[in-house]
Design a protein around this nucleic acid. Structure first.
Length: 521
DNA sequence: TTCCGACAGTGGGGTCGCAAT
DNA sequence: ATTGCGACCCCACTATCGGAA
C-alpha cells in the first residue's frame, strides 16, 4: 500500500469538522489496507507511530529537502525507515537520525512530507486520534464501537486490537480481558469548583484525599510484580520499595490503582518536584531510593485472584481493596450517604457537604492537594474521564500584568495566545512568574490580540513585548520552585480568569504578596 | 429542541538522561 | 562541565460534534 492515499485521507479528515465524516473517511481507508499494512495504517491514522517516540524532534525536521515529484513511498517502506531511526544510538546518533529523516522526507511528495512531519512531531492535527480511529475500526469490521473501545482499554493498545479484529472479525473482541501483568488505561477524574458542587453531582459517595504524587498501577502475578504509569510505561525497576510491598501482600494475583508519593519523617508529603525527581531517576535507583523513599497509597482494585472487578461498583471494589491492603497503604477517606438517606435531608445546608468540607480542610492541613469525590455505585471506567470521580482542589488567584505575548499555533495562528505574566516590584518594575494560554475563550483571544497590539513595543515574529499595562486575573494551584524565573518560583497550572481593565498595573499584586501567601508551604 | 458527555487541541513547568558543545 | 533536546511526569481549559434527554 502506498503512503499517498493515507496522507490524502489525513488531509481530508483535517478539512472536515464533522466527526461522522472523519469516521467514514478513516473507515474507507482501513477497508483498503492489506493484512500486512493494518498494524501500521491504523496507528498512523490515529496520529501515532507504532514505534512510539523515536528521538526525533523539531530540530531534525527543520529545513526539509524539496519534495519528490512522484508518490513512490509505501507504508511498509516508511515503517521500516522509522524502525531504523528508532534503533540508532550512541555518539553521532543525532546527526545520523537527522540524515535518515531528511532522506525519508526527500522521497516524499509535499502532501506526504506534511503528513510525516506531523506524525513524527506528534502534531497531526486532523481532529481524529484514538477515539475516532476506534469508531472507524468498528464501522470497518462491523463490531460495536463500545466493544472495540473496551478491548482497546483492556489491551492498552489500539494497534493490537485493530490487527486481530480485522483479521479475525468481531468475535475476537471477547478475548480481550483484563490480564494481570498487562496494563489497563486508568480511569480519570473530572473536576469541580468545590465539594458542594462535586457532591451535588453524585449520590452516595466516598470523599478521598488526593495525593500529589505519581499515579501507578501495580500488578502482581504470583511472584512477579510490575508497575505502570498513567501512560502505561513500565517503571517497575525504579520503585524497588513498592515492588517489595506488593510482594508481601496476601493476595496471589491482583491489580491495584493508586499513587506513589515521597513523605517526610512526619508523614507529610514532600513537594511534587521531589517525588517526580525520585520516580524519574533511572540510573542509580538504589541511591535515589535511599535519599527519597516513596510510599504507595492505593485507592482502587481492578482484579483479585483471577477475578476481573472492573464492572463491580466502587463500593464493592473498595471492600475487596480493604481486604487486601492494610490501612496505612490505603488512601484516607470518609463515606457520605446519598441525598435521601441518613435522616436530616431538609431545606437547611446539606450536612453531607459540611462533613466533606471538614474532611477537605483536614486533608489540606495535612499538606495534601485536595480531595476526589467518588460515586459508590459506578464501575471502573478504564481510560475515560468518568463522571463518577470528581476532584476538588483549592484555587488561588492573583492580579498580574501582561509583559509579553506569543503568537499562537494551529487554530490560534494569527492570534496572540501565550501570555507572559509579571508581578509588581515595589520599585515599579515587574518580575515574570510564568506564562499561560489557558482559560481564554475565542472572544477573549480576539480581544487580547487587538489590545496587546496597541501596547506593543517589539515583535520578533515569535514574541510581542508590550508596555506593562494590561492587568489579568490569574487562577493557579500554587507555587513551585523554578530555576527559570528570577523570583525563584513560578505558578503551577496558571490560567486566565478575566481581564481587569478596571485596574492599572500599579494595582497588580506584588512579588512579596505572592511569596508571603505561600510562605509556609 | 436543548443539553451534556466525550474528544481534540493548545499549550504550561519540571526533571531526567543522552548527545553535542 | 555545561547546554540543548526529547521523553514523560504533573496538568486546565475551551470548542465542537452528536447522541441523550
Amino acid at each position: 500500500m502506498l503512503l499517498a492515499p493515507l496522507a490524502r485521507v489525513s488531509r481530508e479528515v483535517a478539512e472536515t469538522s464533522a466527526r461522522s465524516r472523519k469516521i467514514s473517511l478513516l473507515a474507507g481507508l482501513f477497508r483498503t489496507a492489506g493484512p500486512l499494512d493494518v498494524p501500521v495504517v491504523i496507528p498512523y491514522l490515529a496520529g501515532r507511530l507504532p514505534q512510539g517516540r523515536i528521538g526525533i524532534g523539531w530540530n531534525a525536521l527543520k529545513d526539509p529537502p524539496p519534495p519528490a515529484g512522484r508518490a513512490t513511498l509505501t507504508v511498509h517502506h516508511v515503517d521500516e525507515a522509522f524502525s531504523a531511526l528508532a534503533a540508532v544510538s550512541g555518539p553521532g546518533s543525532q546527526a545520523e537520525r537527522r540524515r535518515l529523516t531528511q532522506e525519508l522526507l526527500g522521497a516524499a511528495t509535499g502532501e506526504e512530507q506534511r503528513f510525516l512531519v506531523g506524525l513524527i512531531s506528534g502534531e497531526v492535527r486532523q481532529g481524529a486520534l484514538d477515539a475516532v480511529a476506534v469508531e472507524a475500526l468498528a464501522e470497518t469490521s462491523g463490531a460495536a464501537a463500545g466493544a472495540v473501545r473496551r478491548a482497546v482499554m483492556l489491551a492498552g493498545s489500539l494497534q493490537h486490537v485493530a490487527e486481530r479484529l480485522l483479521a479475525e472479525g468481531p468475535r475476537v473482541l471477547e478475548e480481550f480481558l483484563l490480564t494481570v501483568g498487562r496494563p489497563v488505561l486508568p480511569m480519570l477524574a473530572q473536576s469541580a469548583a468545590d465539594v458542594a458542587e462535586a457532591i451535588g453531582r453524585l449520590g452516595a459517595c466516598a470523599v478521598e484525599e488526593k495525593l500529589d504524587g505519581i499515579r501507578v498501577q501495580v500488578h502482581r502475578d504470583g511472584g512477579t510484580v510490575r508497575i505502570f504509569t498513567r501512560t502505561l510505561d513500565d517503571i517497575t525497576d525504579r520503585l524497588p520499595e513498592v515492588v517489595d510491598i506488593a510482594a508481601t501482600l496476601e493476595g496471589d494475583g491482583f491489580v491495584l490503582d493508586g499513587e506513589v508519593i515521597a513523605l517526610d519523617d512526619e508523614g507529610r508529603p514532600r513537594s511534587f518536584q521531589e517525588t517526580a525527581s525520585r520516580v524519574g531517576s533511572r540510573t542509580d535507583v538504589a541511591t535515589a531510593a535511599a535519599a527519597v523513599p516513596v510510599s504507595p497509597v492505593f485507592f482502587d482494585i481492578l482484579s483479585l485472584d483471577g477475578e476481573d472487578l472492573l464492572d463491580l461498583t466502587f463500593a464493592e471494589r473498595h471492600e475487596a481493596l480493604a481486604g487486601l491492603v492494610p490501612e496505612p497503604m490505603r488512601v484516607r477517606r470518609i463515606v457520605v450517604p446519598g441525598p435521601g438517606e441518613g435522616g436530616g435531608g431538609g431545606e437547611e445546608a446539606d450536612p453531607r457537604v459540611g462533613e466533606a468540607e471538614a474532611f477537605l480542610s483536614d486533608t489540606l492541613a495535612r499538606g495534601h492537594e485536595g480531595v476526589v469525590v467518588k460515586a459508590l455505585d459506578t464501575p471502573y471506567s478504564a481510560g475515560r474521564r468518568g463522571a463518577g470521580w470528581v476532584k476538588v482542589k483549592p484555587v488561588h488567584t492573583l492580579d498580574l500584568v501582561v509583559l509579553a505575548a506569543e503568537w499562537g499555533h494551529g487554530r490560534r495562528t494569527g492570534k496572540l495566545s501565550n501570555l507572559h505574566l509579571g508581578a509588581r516590584r515595589e520599585d515599579g518594575s515587574f518580575v515574570m512568574l510564568g506564562k499561560t494560554f489557558k482559560g481564554l475563550t475565542d472572544t477573549m483571544l480576539e480581544w487580547q490580540t487587538g489590545r496587546l497590539r496597541e501596547l506593543a513595543l517589539h515583535d520578533d515574529g515569535f514574541t510581542v513585548t508590550v508596555r506593562p499595562e494590561l492587568v489579568v486575573e490569574i487562577a493557579y494551584d500554587g507555587l513551585q520552585r523554578s530555576s527559570r524565573y528570577p523570583a525563584g518560583v513560578t505558578l503551577r497550572f496558571a490560567r486566565v480568569v478575566r481581564f481587569r481593565e478596571d485596574k492599572r498595573a500599579a494595582d497588580a499584586d506584588t512579588v512579596d504578596t505572592v511569596l508571603a501567601a505561600h510562605s509556609q508551604g
